[in-house]
Each structure stands twice: as C-alpha cells, then as structure tokens.
Simulated assay, not measured.
Amino acid sequence: MKMIDKKVDLRVTRTHKLLTMALLDLLCEKGQLFSNITINEICDKAMVHRTTFYKHFKDKFALLSTTLTWVLRDYLHMNVEDRLQQPLQSVSKMLFGNVLETIVQNQQKDEGFNNFFIHYIGEIFRRDFLELKRRGKQFSLPIELVAEFHSGVIRLLVTWWIQHFEENVTAEQMDEYYYLLVNENIMLE
C-alpha cells in the first residue's frame, strides 16, 4: 500500500511541476500578460489535460500562487527577523537576478498580475509578524493591526518601486523610505 501512495505523490509533484514551469515560461514571454493567459494555453504548454489542471488548482491564480511560492522558496526559508529588519532589501534579493525579475518586468502593465503579486508579498509580511507573535514577541498594539499596517506599507512601497523601476532606486533607499514612513511624524500642516 505504501508504494501506491508514493506513486500518487510523484504524479502530483510531476503535474505541479509541469504546470508551474508552463506558467513560468508563459509569464517570461515578452508581451504575454498574465491576464491574457488562458488555462488552455497553460495546459497545452505543460502537456496536461484541462481536467487534470482543475483536479489540482481552482484557477490560474491558485497556480500563480503555487508558482510564486516555488520561485520564492529560498526567500521563504530566510529568517523571519531578517526579512522584517530590512524588508525591501529582502524583497530585492528575491526579486532581482532571477526569473522573478523577468516576470515582474514583463507583467509591469498587467494590473491583475500586479495586484495579485503585491497582495502576495503583503501576505508574506503579515504572516511574518504573526510568526513573531507565535514565538512570544510582545506588541503594545494588537498584532493583527501591526501586521496589517506593516504589510500595507510594504505593499505600497513594492508597488511604487515596481512603477518607478527605471529610476534605479536601490533596496537600501527603499528600506530607508520604509523606516521614514513608519517612524516619522508625517502630518499635514
């Protein structure tokens, strides 16, 4: 019975890999926007039947989430405190110099992709703050509020950074902006 279970796991792993690689290839194609990619295109590229796709994923956004998690696996294994101490520098480590940079550049004009990606990044940081709470870190405010606040600021900064990509703003500068935004008394006079 154990051999059958292992075989099923290998088939699931293989199917996920084929679909993930197909989506990555499509996202990296110049001019190919995520919003225009169809399930049929993904399945054709992966050589996987459409019904098989739906056995594994609810829709292409679920596949995109799995694909981003696979692309960001090294980043997600980083120490939570390191990611939170220098949030934009840690984002830059995962964003620049790999396939994700190509994807973000190619998808820059795709509002659907960008909204999903920014939300995905924000969720990582929200979970990081909740992990700190689980580890016993004390906060003077409700942790859920702190997590939402910081993940919102990081989402905003990543969005701004992607939109101003050609201005060559460094990750260090972005972290400086982050700390200024969360620590300064920015008041309208």
Rank of each mutant, 00 (worst) to 15 (best):
H16C: 07
F57I: 07
H77K: 15
T170H: 03
K6N: 10
Q32E: 12
R155E: 02
F129M: 08
K7W: 12
L26N: 02
Y179A: 09
F53Y: 15
I124E: 00
L157W: 01
A22E: 04
I186S: 06
S92H: 15
K55H: 14
K45P: 04
V146M: 07
F149H: 05
I42K: 10
W160M: 08
N114V: 09
S140C: 11
V99A: 12
M187C: 10
L23F: 06
V91N: 03
L63T: 07
N185P: 05
T102V: 15
G136Y: 01
E81C: 00
L100D: 05
K109E: 15
H150F: 11
E29T: 09
M3R: 15
E176P: 00
Y178E: 09
D74W: 08
K2D: 10
M78S: 09
L188I: 14
L145H: 07
T51L: 07
L68H: 02
L132A: 02
R83D: 03
V158W: 06
L181M: 14
M187V: 14
I186R: 09
L84I: 11
V91Y: 01
R11C: 08
N106H: 12
N106T: 07
D5M: 13
Q85V: 14
D25W: 00
F34C: 11
E41F: 04
Q85M: 14
R155S: 01
N98T: 03
R135M: 10
N106K: 05
Y75S: 11
K55S: 14
T102D: 11
M94F: 11
K109V: 09
D82M: 11
Y179H: 14
M3K: 15
L10M: 10
Y75K: 06
T66V: 13
K109Y: 12
E29N: 09
E189W: 08
F53D: 13
L27W: 02
R127L: 02
D128W: 01
S65Q: 09
V158E: 06
V182G: 03
D25L: 08
T38L: 07
L26F: 01
M21G: 00
K60C: 06
K137Y: 08
D59A: 06
V153Q: 01
D25Q: 09
N40V: 13
N40K: 12
L64G: 05
T38Y: 05
L95M: 15
E111Y: 08
K45E: 13
E111L: 10
F125V: 02
F139Y: 14
A62H: 13
L181T: 09
V80E: 02
V158F: 12
V80T: 15
C28W: 00
V169C: 08
L27F: 05
Y75T: 10
Q173I: 09
I39R: 04
F57T: 05
F113G: 01
L181W: 04
K133D: 11
V169A: 05
E111W: 00
R83P: 02
N114A: 00
V169E: 09
N40C: 01
S140R: 13
M47F: 12
L181Y: 06
L27Q: 02
D9G: 11
L23A: 04
L68Y: 06
A171Q: 07
L10N: 10
F57S: 06
I143F: 10
R14G: 00
V104H: 03
M3S: 14
M174C: 03
V158R: 02
N183Q: 15
K93C: 10
K109R: 12
